[in-house]
Simulated assay, not measured.
Amino acid sequence: MTQLDDITDYMQKSLSADKTGHSVDHIDRVLALSNKILQDYPQADTFIVRAASLLHDVYDDKLFHSLAQAQAAKENMILFLQSINVTKHQINAIITIIDNMSWSKSIAGNVKPLDLNGQIVQDADRLEAIGAIAITRAITYGAVKDRILYDPNIPPRIAQTKAQYRQDDSTTINHFYEKLLLIKDRLNTKTAQKIAVSRHQFMLDFLDQFKSEWHLTK
């Protein structure tokens, strides 16, 4: 087995029970998108990009009950990477990407700039958050978090910090305006920007149809 095979197996075991839309199939699609973007950026480090794509949700704090659990998952991941002889330099590169690619951390601007490898992984993950599949993931995550689906009397929030962004006092439909519709203009690579166009439009069409049915305007 190659190191990436081992990493894939580790990811599958780590996320096998996920019900929030951050499961193995999500990771598979992020990896596929990363590979697609990599075709246009041969100067990138394919191992770093693929490893970070596979591992980016393994210690995501929103998937754990406490920050301590997330930190423990991160430490376990590092030990695992060391056990399969991933170099210290590679581990640091992977962690730097994972720790600085999320939307919630970027809100307050307290993230390190990503190099090309990180930009590719970030774009792949953000593309997964727009389009048809993204709509189902948003609804799934909202249901798991017991969020209201839609309430026209609750306006979208403008979060200024990660803590504000993570509060569950908004609605699933508001999440489109708070994040998903903003992604298209915050992608790094030209490849991702092209892919985003039709996915973004699909969400706009969905929201228009959803609200017209809710309010019986059509």
Rank of each mutant, 00 (worst) to 15 (best):
Q164M: 05
A196V: 08
Y150E: 07
A124G: 09
I183H: 06
R137V: 15
S102C: 06
A32S: 13
K179R: 01
A129N: 11
I173V: 08
H22Q: 13
A132W: 05
T140N: 02
R126Q: 10
E75T: 10
Q82L: 04
T161Q: 02
S106Q: 09
G142C: 10
R147T: 05
P152G: 09
Q12N: 15
Q39T: 00
N100R: 00
H65Y: 15
R126A: 11
K184W: 03
S104V: 14
V24T: 10
A159S: 04
V86Y: 04
Q119N: 08
T161D: 06
T140A: 15
H89D: 12
K194H: 10
V111P: 03
T20N: 15
T2R: 05
Q164N: 02
S212V: 03
T140C: 07
L67M: 08
T8V: 03
T191M: 13
I130V: 04
A134E: 14
L181Q: 11
H26D: 09
S102Q: 03
Q164E: 13
R29V: 14
L67K: 14
N92C: 08
D60M: 12
N188L: 06
N35R: 09
S212R: 14
I183S: 05
M101Q: 14
Q201A: 07
Y177V: 11
K13Q: 15
D205C: 01
A93L: 02
R50T: 12
F64A: 06
R147G: 07
T171P: 12
T2I: 00
A163N: 01
S102E: 11
D60F: 06
Q193K: 11
S198A: 10
Q119R: 13
K211V: 00
K145N: 01
Q167E: 14
K179S: 08
I133G: 03
T87Q: 12
T136A: 11
K36N: 06
I120Q: 01
H65S: 07
V111I: 14
S104W: 09
N92M: 07
Y150F: 15
I91E: 07
L187F: 02
A192G: 08
Q43E: 14
I183T: 10
I37P: 02
P156R: 00
Q39E: 06
A196D: 10
D115W: 01
F80L: 01
D40C: 01
T161W: 05
P42H: 02
A44D: 05
D168S: 00
G109E: 02
A72Q: 05
V49A: 03
S170F: 06
T172D: 10
S66H: 04
R166A: 13
Q122T: 03
T87S: 09
K105L: 14
L81W: 07
L4N: 01
V58A: 11
V24L: 08
N174Y: 04
I91T: 10
G21Q: 08
N76R: 13
L181I: 06
D125I: 09
S16I: 09
K218L: 01
F64L: 11
S16E: 06
Q164A: 06
K105G: 00
I183G: 09
L38M: 10
D40S: 15
N117Q: 08
A138F: 15
D45N: 15
S198M: 13
A108S: 13
K145I: 00
L33F: 11
L127T: 04
D45Q: 01
L116N: 05
N100L: 04
K62N: 12
K218S: 04
S102R: 05
F47C: 07
K194L: 00
R147Y: 11
Q160R: 09
L181T: 00
R157F: 14
F47H: 04
K162H: 05
I154F: 03
Y41C: 02
